[in-house]
Design a binder for these strands. Structure first.
Lengths: 211, 211
DNA sequence: CCTACCGATCGGTAGG
DNA sequence: CCTACCGATCGGTAGG
């Protein structure tokens, strides 16, 4: 019954998806401005004008990269949290998952968001920020508990002196992890002590106080 | 005796300096690739071809921005450390000075280094890294003492389990501070609790354990 | 440091 | 999704 000559809707979606993934990798490697539409087209075997069949302009691709990154990030983080029995285990899951989002192969979307934020058109920023706020909410939930348990940060006992303790902790911890996009490269070298697993372990040990 | 028609060497140096400062601001605002040589020339009142009298190409300007930023950073940090009587006071001075390097008005050089590192030609990277290593050395000196005093990070008592404790602490703390270039904007709004001074205070309180 | 300019490249489009 | 193309812009240079 299906017309074999017509493309199924999923075909078009697949090509679009391929463009987004290739763009994410190129944007991360070379930057948004230094990546040409011709680079993107070539990466998926198209001619130079064809990406504009799927996207109105280059900025639309950037938006799609960030949107997909945040939606995937929200999904896998929610899943990871579901299996954590304690706040400390939640924290470990958050750190591990966030590092994965930044450094797993083929996962360039959030790194692009960090580096190329200023090239996103103003109007699109609002939508992306709304997604990012949901992601921050997951961290907020866990960090609040850990602070009340006195397991995060060297704040003074008097809570009134540090009303933004959770926000401070969140900005510092996520900042430290996000900044690894500028220097961390996983290598296959034997004896390299800075594997991704080691980085996760050291990060947790540095920030989380054992009771 | 001086020929009044000839430019003194300092005139040329002043124009070069103006180009570097204007470029730093533009590179930070728009990015290296999105900033045109015409933008830079216009910012100092030159015509489009004239920056090439001072620099061989656009990348040379980027290199000058980073080099000047690190040299200035080394200078003011060394000065700030000279007046700190204890390791804890050194830490406070390092945090305060580093935030100043990132957020003081007219101080865009290191922010550009963070964002535009990949656009620096390979050969230039080595020289800049050498300067950066000297800067890291200042932090290393202070952080090592604080770790031995047990005032930094939640490492286990057994030191052998965390041989890279100082490096971990340095990467996490400098990462957290450097990442503020992506979100921190000083505003004049009354009642805004996130002034630069508050950020410095919260950062120190978060990372440094009071004995 | 300016004038005048060049070759290359880029994002995007019309028509199929 | 391709072919063929355009207007605009860009880094950089020659000659003064």
């Amino acid at each position: 019954m299906t017309d074999r000559k017509a493309h199924a809707p999923s075909d078009e979606a697949n090509r679009r998806e391929a463009l987004v993934r290739a763009s994410a990798r190129l944007f991360r490697e070379k930057g948004f401005k230094a990546t040409t539409v011709r680079d993107i087209a070539a990466a998926v075997g198209m001619r130079s004008g064809s990406p504009f069949y799927h996207f109105a302009n280059k900025e639309e691709i950037l938006r799609a990269v960030m949107e997909q990154g945040l939606k995937m990030g929200l999904q896998i983080t929610t899943d990871a949290l579901a299996h954590a029995p304690t706040a400390a285990e939640e924290f470990r899951a958050l750190v591990r998952t966030h590092y994965g989002i930044l450094h797993d192969p083929g996962s360039d979307f959030i790194a692009v968001m960090i580096y190329e934020w200023r090239h996103l058109p103003q109007g699109d920023k609002r939508d992306i920020i709304a997604l990012k706020d949901r992601y921050d909410g997951l961290w907020h939930h866990t960090l609040s508990q850990l602070i009340q348990q006195g397991r995060l940060g060297h704040f003074t006992a008097d809570k009134s002196l540090m009303p933004d303790a959770e926000k401070t902790a969140r900005l510092m911890i996520l900042g430290a992890i996000n900044y690894t996009v500028t220097w961390f490269k996983e290598t296959d070298q034997t004896n390299n002590p800075w594997t991704l697993d080691a980085l996760i372990e050291r990060t947790v040990q540095f920030f989380l106080r054992t009771p």
